[in-house]
Amino acid sequence: GGVGPMSGSYAAPKSVWMPAMKAKGLEISGTFARRMGTVYMDLLLTNKALQVMSDFAIQFNRNSFGLAPAAPLQIHAPLAPNQTVDVSLPLSTVGSVMKMDPLNNLQVAVKNNIDVFYFSTLYPLHILFVEDGKMDRQMFLATWKDIPNENEAQFHIKDCPLNSDVSTNKLQSSNIFTIAKRNVEGQDMLYQSLKLTNGIWVLAELRIQPSNPSYTLSLKCRAPEVSQHVYQAYETILKN
């Protein structure tokens, strides 16, 4: 997965989403990534059955951010027993929307020549952080003031021994943009913005104290239910 500042947003290693024993021998591992402005579901399909698998197709249930396959699942040849194939499925974010619980839950159906199988997985919210998420400074100040205090959520990111420059670069490669930085009484205050694919803006204040490995993250958003997931994205990005 891309981790460094030049290689795009962070992608977790693939994990097993559908074990073979629950899908008549078809094992699916996967992860989500954002590359060059496109969201991908990166999949590894393994045939652990005794027969050849063919005629693959994939479909998503409606979900909170309208994620949907942007192309058919391209598996060009039948999958022989013990064979594995890597597939990168581009996703669009203009599919049907239905609020899921948790918000980032995705229900997936996969079919092959044997049967139809279902699994669900959770996607990290940072795959939805768009490249033009740097808010104008004046707009940031006005929006920060305008969003009521009840919509502010505060989190602690523990054991993060990075300085503010390294943090800024890491976050920027996942489309979290620093708009201003101030040093007050020895602590760095970073003011940041990000925008989700559905147009929701999130404003952030990240406090970093030189002697304290725990960061304080304050998030302001008109849709506060995303804040918990944005915090998890910060954790993931800063610690990988």
């Binding site: 400074r137 004046q138 201003a180 101030r182 007050v184 009484e185 205050m189 304050s218």
Partner: peptide, 20 residues
């Protein structure tokens, strides 16, 4: 450099958040 007052506004915001 054009002083649009925003630099000062961010300083005030950071200050107010540290010493409310």
């Amino acid at each position: 450099e054009l002083d649009d007052g925003l630099d000062e506004a961010f300083s005030r915001l950071a200050e107010s958040r540290t010493n409310p």
